[in-house]
Structures are given as structure tokens and as C-alpha cells.
């Protein structure tokens, strides 16, 4: 079966995010009020061929841990969806 995987990588809470802070300032410069706590991150999408959803998730999650994020400063969130 084929599954669509999304791995979202974000800095861990407490790790300074200068990119997010700069985007925050740009939002204010646009004149838009009420937006705060911007955190920048990255998103990876790929297809996984696996027996079932659980094993597809295991593959995607392991990629998130071992390659797509640096666990020292980042955490990742994996979501999996079956493709028709």
C-alpha cells in the first residue's frame, strides 16, 4: 500500500528562533495586529510504500528522527494518510 507522509520539523520549545522572531517583526511591519509567537519550521512530504499504516508511520517517523530533524534542537511531528 502507498501512504502520504508529512513530517513537520520545529525547533524545540526554549530554543531561540531568530527566524521566527524576524518574521514576527515583518508581520507587524505589514500592519497586521494580533499575531504573535511565530515559530519557523520546515515541512517534508513524501510517499511511503508499506504493508500497513503503522509500518508506514514507523518509516516516516524514523526518517524524521534520524535525518529530517536534529533532535538536539528540533522535534518532529509525523502524519500519515493512505493513498487510494
Amino acid at each position: 500500500m502507498r501512504f502520504a507522509a508529512t513530517v513537520e520539523v520545529q525547533l524545540r520549545p526554549g530554543i531561540a528562533d531568530p527566524e521566527g522572531a524576524t518574521i514576527d517583526k515583518a508581520i507587524a511591519a505589514l500592519g497586521i495586529a494580533g499575531v504573535s509567537e511565530v515559530r519557523a519550521g520546515r515541512c517534508f512530504r513524501f510517499t511511503v510504500e508499506a504493508e500497513d499504516l503503522a509500518s508506514a508511520e514507523e518509516v516516516a517517523d524514523s526518517l524524521g528522527e534520524r535525518l529530517l530533524s536534529n533532535p538536539v534542537i528540533e522535534r518532529h511531528l509525523t502524519t500519515i494518510e493512505a493513498l487510494g
Binding site: A16, P18, E19, N70, I73
Partner: peptide, 17 residues
């Protein structure tokens, strides 16, 4: 070296970008 796990910690974007 940090990414390879030969040294601890990580190098993050500079403060103030």
C-alpha cells in the same frame, strides 16, 4: 562533527539572524 555525533550539541542560526 556535531551532526555526525562526534561532538555534542548543535550549531543553530546566529541570534539576530
Amino acid at each position: 562533527l556535531t551532526e555526525a555525533g562526534l561532538l555534542p550539541g548543535a550549531l543553530q542560526k546566529n541570534a539576530q539572524l
